[in-house]
Write a protein that binds this DNA or RNA. Structure first.
Lengths: 209, 209
DNA sequence: TCACCCATGTGTATCATATCACAAACTCAA
DNA sequence: TTGAGTTTGTGATATGATACACATGGGTGA
């Protein structure tokens, strides 16, 4: 797990890496072993020159007059970006949504796995596939090296977030609809269907020029 | 529903509007009727000057030496951005995820409502709160004025997307993990926990400089 | 009513990102 | 093995977004 060159990777680029990775995995599973930036460009709808620049931050990955090797590209992504398949993730809040996410384990062996869950009423949670602990047990039960939490609660949000940060969490996938604040070194990614729909409405409206 | 000034609103701004709107609604429900860009800035963690510039695209909304009126701001957002509370949305694919979204009707009276759903096996879907039609009936059953679809299928994705576009859909909330292509005038917003987690991993790694 | 104060709105500067244009370097076919 | 053809990687440039700085003008208290 190298972690050298990716110092000054622009934010915008960082946000495109998952798109590339997804496309590359798809291509790989279709048996495609070689691709050119121009082709990939059509596939992901990002300018080929942007793709080449994005890739260049990770080293010299392609060959002139040839293109890129899909397998190599994928493994470089994993190495250089520190994306093992072993990220330990915790789930906080095991309601309907939490359970749905838990069962929806499409990410196993892609980014890592949900190791365990926390809830204020662990006893009320029915039979599920991973251990569910009380939130107060977080200190003892937090998996070794865990950095990322999926947050699916609707009450005591700020308090719980503080608790998570105290226990070493630095990245939060936020499914709550509540507002909370975090220090600058903590990363929060909201996942919010309502906001997504609003963005669509705004964009489609401001297109009718 | 005016639709005049919002012609040249920058993309970045458009993406922040839902954040403002959410914060403002929250403040409103807390009984706050007046706010200054500086305060809002701390709340949403966006520079106050950026907020003021963003707002300025919608007109002259504030008063010097005073701030903004929360109620007014919210209604301007709704009017100027064409966000009624009546957006007709369809759901395509009624599996586990689709059902979860359907029941999770937190957006009613916020952006609009899911009017009906489509599936390839409508008869297999159990008892649900909205009508479920066969995908082939889309032409007849598409709600009047519907522009936005929530896509929760995993097979025949490209084909289904084409079908949606043929039937007037211009915005897609994409929960599939498949790759598909759309014309430039169609807006797609992926919602993808895996990619979100990857972004977090990339960002948290490239922070350890 | 008046004068001071304060937050907005905006021209301008800075910074970030995307695109252009092309030299370098590899491939591939003959 | 050689040379034409092709695609990468990257300086330079254009575009787009954010931050600064301050004039403007309404708010507020005496």
């Amino acid at each position: 797990m190298k972690m050298n060159s990716n110092r000054n990777v622009p934010k915008a680029t960082l946000q495109r890496y998952p798109i590339y990775l997804k496309a590359l995995r798809k291509l790989q599973s279709n048996g495609i072993s070689r691709i050119m930036s121009k082709e990939l460009s059509e596939y992901v709808d990002i300018e080929s020159t942007t793709i080449r620049r994005d890739f260049s931050f990770l080293g010299t990955l392609g060959k002139q007059g040839y293109g890129y090797d899909v397998d190599k590209l994928i493994s470089i992504f994993n190495e250089e970006l520190g994306l093992g398949f072993d990220e330990k993730i915790i789930l906080v809040g095991v309601g309907n949504l939490g359970k749905a996410l838990m069962n929806y384990n499409r990410w196993n062996h892609v980014v890592g796995e949900i190791v365990c869950a926390f809830d204020i009423f662990p006893e009320k949670v029915g039979k599920v596939s991973i251990p569910v602990y009380h939130i107060n047990e977080m200190k003892e039960k937090m998996p070794e090296g865990c950095r990322i939490a999926i947050l699916c609660i609707s009450t005591n949000v700020q308090e719980t977030v503080n608790h998570l940060i105290d226990n070493g969490i630095v990245g939060i996938v936020d499914f709550t609809h509540e507002h909370f604040q975090v220090p600058k070194n903590i990363h929060v990614k909201p996942v919010d269907v309502v906001s997504t729909i609003q963005e669509l409405v705004f964009e489609t409206n401001s297109m009718n020029k």
